[in-house]
Structure formats: structure tokens, C-alpha cells
Simulated assay, not measured.
Amino acid sequence: MNTQEKLDILSADAQYDLSCACGTKNPLEHRKRNDTGDGWLYPTTTASGGAGIILKTLMGNRCANDCKYCPLRAQNDFRPVALSPFEMASFFYEFQLKRPLLGIFLSSAVMGDAEKTMGLLVSTAEILRKHFRYKGYIHVKIIPGASRASIDAALSYASAVSLNIETPGARHFSKLTDRKDYQKDIIDPLAYIGKQTGPGARYKKVHTSSQFIVGASDENDKEILLYGSRMYSELSMGRLYFSAYQSGLGDPSIPGEQRIDPPLSQSMLQPLLFDEETLGKPVRSDGLLVREHRLYQADWLLRRYSFSYEELLFEKDGNLSLEKDPKLVWAEHHPDFFPVSVKRGTKEQLLRVPGIGPTYASRIVKGRRDSAISSLDDLRFPPASLQKARKFLQL
């Protein structure tokens, strides 16, 4: 096979990573899963909050690990394909000269062991930086169990790195794999990455992210968000993602075996719409995907709306409400906080109002300095946002 034929297989295998499932209203930020020849292009969110398209694929798809949520796990039957570092680097460099791309996301199944695979990923990044003089965005996926030396090498070339935490705690993690050690392979490397990229550290400009697999164990949202809030505060984590588990954890008719569902359908790969100002409304009724969406909404409250973990409200089962977004739930449980004055409310107070996000809150604060606001209609919000906010505001 030539490089593009290999990429067709490897990029298709990369589809099982469903991070960024909450897209935006901008179609340019949605995954491209089509027959136009650029199905390996994928949306990403930059450290500054903007979006762009990256080349996202795997270096290889034959994995030595046994993660039960992954169709590429060991013992499964599929066609093994791999690219050499120079093959990957040269293809990407030539490809990005022909069309604008934000950068490349370098990831891989664990081919042999963590160190060997990290060597391939780091070598690809090194070739791009030194041989091709590429100065754009390079995201390097840190392989679970990677040594500190390998992590340092990745940080020296990468714009961003990520290592998936997968579950909130060792008990849940043990249900997904028998080969990986939660503390040694996941938590210790995450802590080291946090030290190397935190404020004042050598690689403080390298963006970091991680991901939870939602629903693969019996974890609840309260556990996920507790771990997530601590990753932000203690590990200097830049961004968290949540990926709904799309395969059964096991088939009762086959004791001890993992049932892998058929490949994801096109409809399952369509992103949920996400509106920053309204914190979105799910467009599907699938419970697990709505749950994923609610976790993204709660994460936005923690990152962008100055909410603390302690302020999040959960159902009796420890999960977020599927019927209402978490910001609306908080507002309905705090009637004493409302209504917020449009003329005197601080930006922080306005951010607590359902339907108002950072953009609209800043617009109100700036606009009332320039001219008098005599009616809520003067705010010129979209009708849906204004309708949601109206009962929580006063002039």
C-alpha cells in the first residue's frame, strides 16, 4: 500500500476516539467522515479557544493493550497497518502545503510497548521540526506507561500533549483493562506532565488535555467531575474531553469475552450542537450521548463560568440531569440569587444567568457604559437566549 492507502485505514481506525463530540454551530468545526478523500481531517480546539482542522490519524493500529472499550485492542481481528516516522511526516508536510490545516495530531496504538511507540511519535515530530522546519501545531499523544524521558522528548517538540485518564479511579479502570496499571501508567505520568507544563515550568506553553471514557464502567458524573476539577486545580490541566462509550462492556452469553459492536454508523458520528451562550441543547435522545453532552456543559461551567465543583448539582444517582443543562439546574435551586440587575450586575453575576455566556455578559457590561438600557430587547440577544434569560433578569 502507498501512504495514502495506509492513512485511509489508520484514519478510519482513529474514529473510535470521539473527543470533541460536542461540536459548535460552525460546520467547519465538525468531523469530516465522507468520501471526498479527506476523511482523516478532524476538528480541534486550540488553547486560546479557537478551532481549526487537523490531520488526525494513527501511526499504527495493532495494539498490545486490551482496553475493552477499543475495537483495536489485542486479540481482535483486523488488518494491521503502520507508518514510519518519515512517511508520516513527509505526507503531512506535503499535504498541508496544498490546503490550510491547523496542524497534526500524532497518536498510535501501542505497537510492542509504550517506549517503542513513543519513540515513533517523537521521531515524527522531530522530523517535522528539524528536517521540514515546520513551525505549526503538533499534538503528541502520550502513551500510557511512557517514561519521563519520553515525555520530556515529546514536550520539546509538541505544541500540545494529551494522556487519557479514561476513568475516575482505579476501581473503574480495572474493569476496562487487565494489562495497564492505573497509578503507574496513567496517574504518575499525568502528574509529571502537570509539573513540566504548570506555571513557571520549562514547558508551560505546551497545552495539555485528557479524556474520560463515559459509561464504560459504572462510574457516575459526580466522580468524573470531581476528578476533572482536581486535574484542573492540581495538575494544571488545560482541557478535558468526554467520549461516550459506544460498545458493550461485555456480552453475558460469552463469559469473560468482550463484545465489539459493528463500526459506528454515520449518524452516530454527527456531533451534538453546542451553543456557548445557552450551554446548548442536545439534538438526540440517546441517553449516553446526552450524558456526554451534559458533562461538556458542566466542564464549561468549571472552566469558563467561574463555577466550583461544589456548586454543581446532581441527581440521586450521582449523575447530572438529562432533562436540563447544569447551569439552569443551579439557577432554579438558587432563587435568592435572582433576578440579576442588567444595569448593576457584575460580569460574574451575569454569567450565572441561563442564556448568558461570556460574550453576552461582556456585551452587557460594555453596552451599558455607552448607552442606557431601557428594555431587555435593547440587549439584542438571539430570541432563544433572551427567552431563557428573561425571567432571571431585571432592569
Score class of each variant (00 low, 15 high):
residue 210 S to I: 01
residue 203 Y to S: 09
residue 230 R to M: 13
residue 219 E to H: 11
residue 200 G to K: 03
residue 217 S to P: 09
residue 217 S to I: 09
residue 207 H to I: 03
residue 203 Y to R: 04
residue 201 A to W: 02
residue 201 A to Y: 05
residue 216 A to I: 15
residue 226 L to W: 11
residue 218 D to H: 08
residue 216 A to R: 12
residue 210 S to D: 03
residue 213 I to D: 10
residue 219 E to N: 07
residue 214 V to E: 08
residue 204 K to A: 15
residue 212 F to C: 09
residue 217 S to K: 10
residue 208 T to D: 00
residue 203 Y to T: 02
residue 214 V to P: 09
residue 228 G to K: 07
residue 208 T to E: 00
residue 220 N to Y: 05
residue 210 S to M: 05
residue 225 L to I: 08
residue 226 L to K: 09
residue 225 L to H: 10
residue 205 K to H: 11
residue 233 S to R: 04
residue 224 I to R: 02
residue 199 P to M: 05
residue 197 T to D: 06
residue 218 D to N: 15
residue 232 Y to N: 11
residue 225 L to V: 08
residue 223 E to Y: 06
residue 212 F to T: 03
residue 206 V to P: 05
residue 227 Y to K: 00
residue 219 E to M: 12
residue 232 Y to R: 12
residue 233 S to M: 01
residue 233 S to W: 02
residue 200 G to A: 04
residue 234 E to L: 12
residue 215 G to S: 06
residue 210 S to Q: 02
residue 199 P to Q: 04
residue 208 T to V: 05
residue 199 P to L: 03
residue 203 Y to E: 04
residue 211 Q to R: 01
residue 198 G to A: 07
residue 197 T to H: 08
residue 230 R to F: 07
residue 230 R to P: 13
residue 207 H to T: 05
residue 228 G to I: 11
residue 217 S to M: 05
residue 218 D to K: 11
residue 229 S to P: 06
residue 228 G to T: 15
residue 204 K to C: 09
residue 233 S to D: 12
residue 197 T to Y: 07
residue 222 K to G: 03
residue 208 T to C: 00
residue 232 Y to D: 03
residue 200 G to L: 04
residue 234 E to W: 09
residue 236 S to I: 10
residue 225 L to P: 13
residue 212 F to L: 05
residue 215 G to E: 11
residue 200 G to C: 04
residue 227 Y to F: 11
residue 227 Y to L: 03
residue 229 S to L: 14
residue 221 D to T: 04
residue 214 V to W: 05
residue 232 Y to M: 02
residue 212 F to H: 04
